[in-house]
Write a protein that binds this DNA or RNA. Structure first.
Length: 773
DNA sequence: CTTAGTAGGCTTTTT
DNA sequence: GCCTACTAAG
């Protein structure tokens, strides 16, 4: 077991304890995945069969990467038999095998969130409720909450607290919708994402022999990211490990950021209560970040009440201070970030792929993008609409689903008129109403309008019947043809992308590309299975694809580009330099989180996650005004900045926002900074990593280019705003132009707004009105 | 039944 | 400001 020597002492202890329940608290960057993989390797070396080990993750990506690493250690042929995957993937596999015990078939459909939403909308309509009050998102989140907490529709209706809060929100009939929703899913032989966990619980609760079978199968259970488990997941794991209690959960309460998806931080905080004789291991050495970054993050998270106390430390160099950047507007923020990235790239030889810009909301990406594009900095945005959420992809998949499960009503609704075949909303409405009245499935009604008294004319009836026979044809083909052949056939026969030939718009071309991309993926899937000696049929592909996300489609991750993503998406990743942008009140922390401490603490953890992504340099930026929801808002710096011990931050704030300070003294500061910067640069060249000096910083960002010491600075011969002009600014009012300068080709002016102070503004953004010059 | 035009709305989103 | 989802006209 010499591989154990590659671990530090606390890691090794966590790996070697396998006799009972263990909780591994893994601080950011402390080698959590390493512990998990080595532990599995250790279990195998100790003689456990791979098929008796269950390892649960939250993403396919995490599962795949872990499996690869284990394969390297113990060989592919052993690793293959591990039960390793996401909660959803593993339990959908078990549910397919045991489906009959809970009234489903093994080919049950998986409804994605769009299907759930669509079903909820139809139910609200059917019940003639006001969709302004019964918003689908809200209703869905209530249902989801109930399912995650294993509250049945009846229990929901009987629960006084839930009823009270629904009453208060003027949506008292949610329990009714919930109940109908469950019935419809069952009729459609469909489970939504939450059902995969809920029905697993139902299965184990109602079938003790089946539970026992899996308890015996899984001799050892490991759970990654335990802080993100919800109650349904907690209970599955608890039940499966009940007899042997050989379980190891790994997580970091400080990185619990998914409560809005039902994650319950109490699962990790209370683990010791749930499992007797728990051994706790703390991984406190951070291998990722400089001491400054680790200490700053510690000082921040220290402000949270609810947490497992730990002392995360780094033995790397001190490193540079966290840099606070202040911009006037979101646009200027983009410019400052791009400027700094250029300097990191040019002067300090950072690769673009070493740098990430992280934000709280996706909408913030736009300004950053614009600025990067203008500066010809390559970037890649993660997030937004995922591949599998694209309309054309979902359409193809809906055809597949329907071919495998004729009861899948959401699939029928989605594709019955896609591509347009003259079956409109009215007809579809009649179809489902009739099916409901007659107590049959819509599928049955399709080709027998007469028998079921479907009130449509002969032409429409024919169209419906033709649609049915088309799907029935695919259903027959799937019995003999492999997944790739069937789906190519579907795409060809339905004409889903044929309009791309007539329509040359980039839009339809990209749709065509996407469908081809999907076909390629299916082809690869079939080839993979063939290598493993299996034939891949449509249901096999379907059960895999329903649980796939965009993160699994990652390509060109190796290219040298800046990463732009939300902080949520950045969890688990690391970059040499990280820019956290828009760190302002009401944005971060989000205004939605301000009314209770629990969610405010979660926002703080989110900020903690953001900071701890950085290995060497971390920038925190905020703007004084920001364009949001169509209008410009004033912004104050986030309270979280004050939560960080000031000794770890340096800031450009004083320079930009100290109107009382005289220009003269600023100049002095500025020159001092420039001097330090210069000497810092020189040192840096000889040793790029270690001597990253804290003082070579962009804190002069807005002023260094104005100060006389800067060589790139040129006075602007400016006709529009000569010195002494009287100008009017939308926010600051009337001011006098003191001086102008050129900053990377952008004109900048220092303007005295009297009581509002002296501001340094970029003229192209400031929208100044000249009153007198 | 399809298309265009507008009103509303707005966090994060491992599956 | 931008996207979606519903409504009114073709």
């Amino acid at each position: 077991m010499e591989f154990l020597n590659e671990l530090n002492e606390s890691q090794r202890k966590a790996v070697e304890y396998i006799d009972g329940a263990s909780l591994v608290i893994a601080g950011a960057g402390s080698g959590k995945t390493r512990v998990l993989t080595y532990k599995i390797a250790y279990l195998l070396k100790r003689g456990l069969r791979p098929s008796s080990i269950l390892a649960l993750t939250f993403t396919n990506k995490a599962a795949r990467e872990m499996k690869e690493r284990i394969a390297e250690m113990v060989g592919v042929d052993t690793a293959r038999y591990l039960w390793m995957g996401t909660f959803h993937a593993i339990f959908s596999r078990i549910l397919r095998a045991e489906a009959v015990h809970i009234g489903f078939t093994k080919n049950f459909s998986i409804y994605d969130s769009a299907d759930s939403t669509s079903l909820i909308k139809s139910l609200v309509k059917e019940l003639k409720l006001d969709d302004k009050l019964y918003k689908h998102g809200l209703v869905h989140s209530r249902i989801s909450y109930a399912k995650n907490n294993l509250i049945s529709p009846n229990a929901y209706a009987a629960n006084a607290d839930l009823q009270k809060s629904d009453m208060y929100a003027k949506i008292p009939r949610v329990s009714e919708i919930y109940s109908l929703y469950c019935n419809r899913c069952k009729q459609a032989d469909a489970m939504d994402f939450d059902d995969l966990l809920l029905q697993t619980n139902v299965l184990f609760r109602n079938n003790p022999t089946i539970l026992t079978k899996y308890q015996q199968t899984f001799a050892y259970i490991l759970v990654d990211e335990y802080q993100d488990t919800n109650f349904a997941q907690y209970l599955i794991v608890k039940k499966l490990s009940e007899t042997h209690e050989r379980i190891c959960v790994v997580g970091d309460d400080a990185q619990s950021i998914y409560s809005f998806r039902g994650a319950n931080i109490d699962n990790i905080l209370q683990f010791k209560t749930a499992y007797h004789n728990t051994q706790t291991f703390k991984l406190e050495r951070n291998y990722r970040s400089t001491q400054t970054i680790v200490n700053a993050a510690n000082s921040l998270i220290d402000k949270n009440e609810k947490q497992i106390r730990k002392t995360v430390f780094s033995e790397k160099e001190t490193g540079s201070l966290i840099h606070e950047m202040t911009a006037f507007t979101d646009l200027e923020e983009g410019i400052l970030v791009a400027d700094e990235i250029k300097s990191l790239h040019k002067t300090f030889a950072y690769n673009y792929s070493d740098i990430a810009i992280l934000y709280r909301t996706n909408s913030q990406s736009r300004v950053m993008e614009d600025s990067l594009r203008k500066n010809a900095i390559p970037y890649r945005i993660y997030g937004g609409l995922s591949f599998y959420q694209r309309k054309e992809i979902k359409d193809v998949i809906a055809y597949c689903r329907l071919a495998c499960n004729f009861n899948d009503e959401e699939a029928i609704k989605r594709i019955i008129n896609v591509p347009a075949r003259g079956i409109g909303d009215t007809t579809v409405g009649k179809l489902f109403d009739t099916a409901r009245e007659q107590g049959v499935g819509a599928w049955d009604v399709l080709d027998d309008a007469l028998r079921y008294n479907l009130p449509v004319n002969a032409g429409t009836a024919l169209k419906l019947a033709k649609f049915k026979s088309l799907i029935a044809l695919f259903a027959t083909k799937k019995e003999t043809m492999n997944a790739y052949e069937v789906v190519s056939d579907i795409v060809k026969q339905t004409g889903l992308i044929s309009d791309a030939f007539t329509d040359k718009s980039t839009e339809s071309l990209s749709r065509k590309d996407n469908v081809e991309e999907l076909l390629k993926a299916i082809h690869e899937f079939c080839e993979r299975e063939k290598v493993a000696g299996k034939d891949a049929f449509l249901p096999d592909f379907l059960s895999e694809v329903s649980l796939l996300t965009d993160q699994d489609t990652d390509k060109d991750t190796n290219s040298n580009k800046i990463t732009l993503m939300t902080i949520h998406a950045a969890k688990g990743l690391e970059f040499k330099a990280v820019f956290i942008v828009g760190v302002e009140e009401n944005l971060f922390p989000s205004s939605y989180s301000l009314d209770n401490d629990r969610s405010l603490e979660e926002e703080r953890r989110l900020f903690y996650v953001a900071i701890t992504r950085a290995e060497e340099r971390c920038y925190i930026s905020h703007a004084r005004s920001r364009f949001r929801n169509g209008k410009s808002d004033f912004c104050n710096p986030s309270r979280f900045i004050k939560d960080i011990d000031p000794q770890y931050i340096e800031s450009s704030k004083d320079i930009d926002f100290e109107p009382k300070q005289s220009r003269f003294s600023n100049w002095n500061d500025d020159m001092e900074i420039e001097r330090k910067r210069f000497s810092g640069n020189e040192r840096f060249k000889t040793n790029p990593v270690k001597s990253m000096p804290a003082n070579r910083e962009p804190q002069q960002n807005s002023l260094r280019k104005i100060g006389p010491t800067q060589q790139q600075t040129h006075a602007v011969s400016n006709d529009t705003y000569p010195i002494g002009s009287l100008v009017k600014h939308g926010v600051f009012g009337i001011g006098v132009v003191l001086e102008t300068s050129l900053v990377n080709g952008n004109e900048k002016a220092n303007i005295d707004f009297g009581t509002k102070g002296i501001k340094s503004l970029l003229l192209k953004f400031a929208k100044l009105e000249v009153l007198k010059n």
